[in-house]
Design a protein around this nucleic acid. Structure first.
Lengths: 108, 108
DNA sequence: TATAAACTATATTATATCATATATTGATTT
DNA sequence: AAATCAATATATGATATAATATAGTTTATA
């Protein structure tokens, strides 16, 4: 295979992967959504609990949860009047872990 | 300090940090910009080289480089007619490394 | 001054955000 | 079982921001 043809393929593979990852980053690139995902990283929480912890207005929170649900980053479970959310994507959880390690560690 | 006051502080600290990180994610959440940053992760490259590797139209690429420059993720160095770009933020580089580890590893 | 490399401006179109108002769903009381 | 309440979701609309193509501009060298 010619070198330029190889380059085209490499660019296309990279573009496909970049599109997938960029989409996830975009979904997480709002402070509220990032906080939601961070808060859910090691526990399931009801909407009302998130609301209290993050100090977000209810419809606003709900709208962001809708975005995260659509992206399949988060999944709801109904229990009576309340709806509990948890992370569903291992990769998203790993990413949050990495972000925490990079940006929230103590500066040496 | 009261428990609710503590909670407010925690929420505010988290919000401040989330805003910073979300901004970075947002800057990287476009496929072209993500590819640019990935490509620069271990080498400096001229605009023309990026153009060829990523198969992007020149003004399009240049506009994305402008965004990355404004975010101080990338820095230009002029050498004659050409302008070489390189990463300047250790944290951004670490993030790209983490993304690579999470999303580009072979599935087991 | 002509050319190559890269940047900037402009205009169009598409998306995202967020507040307010309204709807749904399940539990509780009468 | 109808009315009510509490928890959450959805709809709507106003405003802001982002993406991208085309055209024009700058800078450096030959």
């Amino acid at each position: 295979m010619s070198r330029t043809r190889e380059g085209e393929l490499a660019a296309q593979n990279m573009a496909a992967k970049a599109e997938e990852v960029a989409l996830l980053l975009k979904t997480l690139s709002h402070p509220a959504r990032l906080m939601i995902v961070c808060t859910l990283v090691d526990t399931e929480l009801a909407v009302g609990e998130l609301e209290a912890m993050l100090e977000l207005h209810q419809p606003h929170l709900s709208q962001h949860l809708t975005v995260l649900r659509a992206a399949r980053i988060v999944e709801p479970r109904r229990a009576g009047k309340q709806i509990y959310y948890r992370l569903t994507q291992a990769k998203a959880a790993e990413l949050v872990g990495a972000l925490h390690a990079i940006f929230c560690r103590r500066p040496e």
